[in-house]
Design a protein around this nucleic acid. Structure first.
Ligand code: MN
Ligand code: MN
Ligand code: MN
Ligand code: MN
Lengths: 245, 245
DNA sequence: GAAATAAGTTAGTTCGTACTAACTTATTGT
DNA sequence: ACAATAAGTTAGTACGAACTAACTTATTTC
């Protein structure tokens, strides 16, 4: 209560402040920055349609917001070519991602949430939790470096492991690999994969692949599995030499 | 991500639903309902100006929102006379208060937050936390019935102890009383009172009171204290018979 | 290299939530 | 009783964030 429109998470502590204090971003603006960050990890600037699809909104809405974010200096937009984060936009995105992943870890470890069920809750809490709260959660967890889905947790300063991983879908036949992380978006898919032993840390070998996005056969431990292309694309792995264990 | 404007805390689980599902309220609407509830506890309908003052906004803004809340069937407004919650409005307010108080309890007990420092964080999280999360927190705490400031925690169904308490400011001279709860709004005031031993559970006796909102003398345990009228009004007590212990 | 298609932008609208200024109703004090 | 004051409402404006429809630019395909 007693919070004006601008008094948000980032700090309405002292009523009289000397510092200019940039006003807090809205939930929406934060989520835009996050999906732009994630799309950019693919290598190219974030296209309007891709952002729209990730957020479940119309492309026209994205064009509008990108102009606002550009005005705020958070993204660089090249007309008809997509958006890239500026340094300050990237920092905000990474801090949001940090909050998200620590919250997910906390919910799973301390409150008994299921692995597959935690993303949506975190998607809202990430905008309401202060950096202080998130640091306390991280401490309570022993400052983990990865979330329950294997995704790396950025530091408060915005440093994070950005190495690109290949998905099962990219593996050559015969390759051995360790599952490092998986997409956390679809609870159903996560439950499906878990049931088959495909979780971070699992070691698998690609046996065969049918063309035209056909089924992919692989061994997980001693068991043999066959999964579809969509499922395979959601699992990120690290290739192992045949000698690796 | 992938949340349309209406997909909020209250549940966008199943994409195809039969139930009409009333759309989630905004943070602002929820906070209005909460302050109306709190003002109404004083006995009379919530006046426009009082709501405005509690929320730190202009009275004109309140007039507008009250019409919207009335349209939604959450309040009954009598023009120029103030607003009262409808049954459904009250339920929403009590569920929000439940979330707030459980979150405060959790932050203090499980994450080492200070008693005095927890209100503002809860004020934001209460709108983002699902009922499920809040129930898990309550379980982890052993389902407490009061928050760290002594305020009773409503049940999920919206039942709560609404008995009215008198504040120290109302105590007659010579009365013995037990501190039951205190206002959680002002961290500074809470620290001040705590330093003097005035916390929920403390037993005190009113020794003397100067007129014109003058200082109030009281004993807290064996110590003698003198506090101002504003501080006294923030501490709610239960009178004890002289024989009570 | 032009036509077809896909991607992106602009214009115009809506809704929630705030604001200030001007006006209206209620309460109070003499 | 009625003027002064306090409380409340309306009108008009602004901004963020969404939408659809219509138009423009880029890319692909023949
Ligand atoms: Mn997630
Ligand atoms: Mn989010
Ligand atoms: Mn509180
Ligand atoms: Mn709140």
């Amino acid at each position: 209560m007693s919070a004006r429109a601008t008094d948000e998470r980032s700090g309405a502590r002292s009523t009289h402040r000397a510092v200019p204090r940039e006003k807090a971003l809205t939930r929406q603006a934060e989520d835009y920055l996050k999906v732009i960050y994630e799309i950019e990890q693919g290598g190219s600037p974030a296209a309007t349609t891709d952002i729209a699809e990730q957020l479940g909104i119309a492309a026209a809405s994205v064009s509008g917001m990108l102009q606002r974010l550009a005005r705020l200096g958070l993204v660089k937009v090249e007309r008809y070519r997509g958006a890239r984060l500026s340094a300050s936009g990237r920092l905000i995105a990474l801090q949001l991602i940090r909050r998200h992943r620590i919250i997910e870890s906390f919910l799973v470890t301390k409150l008994g949430y299921g692995w597959d069920d935690v993303h949506e809750e975190a998607e809202r809490l990430e905008h309401a939790a202060s950096a202080d709260l998130v640091d306390r959660m991280a401490d309570a967890l022993g400052n983990p470096t990865a979330d329950p889905h294997g995704a790396p947790i950025p530091t408060a300063a915005g440093r994070v492991d950005e190495r690109r991983l290949s998905s099962i879908a990219d593996l050559p036949i015969g390759a051995r690999a360790r599952v490092v992380r998986m997409s956390d978006r679809d609870p159903e898919l996560l439950r499906y994969l878990k049931k088959r032993g495909i979780v971070p840390g699992a070691i698998l070998r690609l046996v065969e692949r049918e063309p035209f996005d056909g089924p992919i056969s692989l061994t997980v431990g001693r068991a043999k599995q066959s999964i579809g292309a969509t499922a395979a694309a959601a699992v990120y792995v690290e290739k192992l030499a045949r000698t690796d264990r």
